Amino acid sequence: MLGLDVCEFGGQVLELLWLTVCYRGLLADKKDLHVEDEEDERNLNYVAPLQKSLEEIRQLDKDDQSLVKYKRTLLGTETMPAADPAVARVQVTRLTLLCDQAPEPITMDLTEDLSALKEKTFSLKEGVTYRLKIHFKVNREIVAGLRYHHVTSRKGITVDKVSHMVGSYCPKEEEHEFLCAAEQAPGGVMSRGRYAVRSRLTDDDRNTFLDWEWNFDLNKDWSE
């Protein structure tokens, strides 16, 4: 439980650039996976490419003017100020649930106390179509193969597992955004009630940048 805009397209193009410059033809199967605590067996043989710095990528293939121009478009030409090494390479700042029928977007501030977020419950109307938007900031170096995962459970029983390939992104001062594909909430009396969700954002190297838990009540209407 629980489309392609400009930000998502840019992430996909950057993913292609990363593959062209760093993978050197070693393409692996990177299908979206349904996961909980480990990747699906189909992904166990996948080996992430060696990490290259942003400046190393800029310096590669200097004689290929078309590629140089392409990299300037995606990566920019200016060097960012040195980031604090104590700051995470990827900072997940918000998760927003967007629904045309909702009174207003449902937003989780992920920079605050996550234990308090776990105690809070959001309200979701049954049967509606919605999309999740992930807001995050990339610091210092390119991050490759970001994935968003979540596991939804009810009364301790897993009812859904989802994984979205978010893509690869360059560091920049502004936040990146990724809009997940549309989902439809279940409907009917039997589906109503409290659900628990565990979400996390990882990368190709299986680094976990944020792991958090939240809850929602599936109701007959938004106001319940």
Results as ranks from 00 to 15, higher is better:
14 L>K: 08
123 S>L: 08
24 R>S: 10
147 R>M: 08
68 V>H: 05
21 V>A: 10
203 D>Q: 02
101 Q>T: 15
22 C>Q: 09
4 L>D: 04
155 K>L: 13
141 E>A: 04
199 S>F: 04
153 S>N: 08
215 N>V: 03
54 L>K: 12
84 D>V: 06
114 L>C: 13
217 D>N: 14
136 F>D: 00
171 P>N: 10
117 L>R: 00
147 R>C: 14
185 A>L: 15
200 R>I: 02
171 P>F: 06
151 V>P: 02
196 A>P: 00
45 N>I: 01
78 E>R: 15
34 H>K: 09
147 R>T: 11
224 E>T: 12
112 E>G: 02
144 A>Y: 13
4 L>T: 08
134 I>Y: 00
95 L>A: 10
46 Y>I: 11
197 V>L: 10
21 V>S: 03
78 E>C: 06
210 L>K: 08
108 M>K: 09
22 C>N: 10
2 L>N: 06
86 A>T: 12
119 E>T: 07
194 R>C: 09
143 V>T: 07
25 G>S: 09
62 K>C: 03
20 T>A: 15
145 G>Q: 03
51 Q>H: 13
7 C>K: 13
143 V>H: 06
32 D>A: 14
111 T>F: 05
85 P>W: 04
96 T>F: 01
9 F>V: 12
196 A>G: 01
64 D>E: 14
202 T>Q: 12
198 R>V: 05
56 E>K: 03
2 L>A: 10
89 R>L: 04
43 N>R: 11
179 L>F: 06
157 I>L: 11
72 R>Q: 14
49 P>Y: 04
145 G>A: 06
27 L>C: 09
12 Q>F: 03
201 L>W: 01
79 T>F: 05
141 E>K: 05
213 E>I: 03
13 V>R: 04
58 R>D: 05
78 E>D: 09
132 L>N: 08
53 S>E: 10
219 N>L: 15
186 P>H: 08
55 E>W: 11
114 L>Y: 03
73 T>W: 13
84 D>S: 12
8 E>K: 11
30 K>F: 03
190 M>R: 11
97 L>F: 08
192 R>T: 07
16 L>S: 09
137 K>G: 01
99 C>F: 07
70 Y>R: 04
12 Q>H: 07
76 G>K: 04
110 L>A: 02
7 C>W: 08
183 E>Y: 07
84 D>W: 04
108 M>Q: 13
68 V>K: 14
152 T>W: 00
109 D>K: 12
49 P>D: 01
94 R>H: 15
79 T>L: 12
212 W>E: 04
97 L>W: 03
147 R>S: 10
192 R>G: 02
162 V>R: 11
114 L>V: 06
101 Q>D: 13
84 D>P: 02
214 W>S: 02
206 R>S: 10
163 S>F: 00
121 T>Y: 02
174 E>K: 11
150 H>V: 04
211 D>L: 10
143 V>M: 02
19 L>Y: 01
51 Q>G: 05
135 H>K: 05
114 L>Q: 11
185 A>G: 01
219 N>K: 14
109 D>Q: 07
191 S>T: 14
102 A>C: 11
109 D>F: 07
48 A>F: 06
57 I>M: 15
105 P>M: 05
115 S>G: 01
36 E>F: 10
39 E>R: 14
22 C>L: 09
10 G>R: 15
130 Y>P: 00
105 P>K: 08
95 L>P: 00
162 V>Q: 13
59 Q>I: 01
161 K>A: 09
190 M>E: 12
212 W>Q: 00
17 L>H: 10
152 T>D: 07
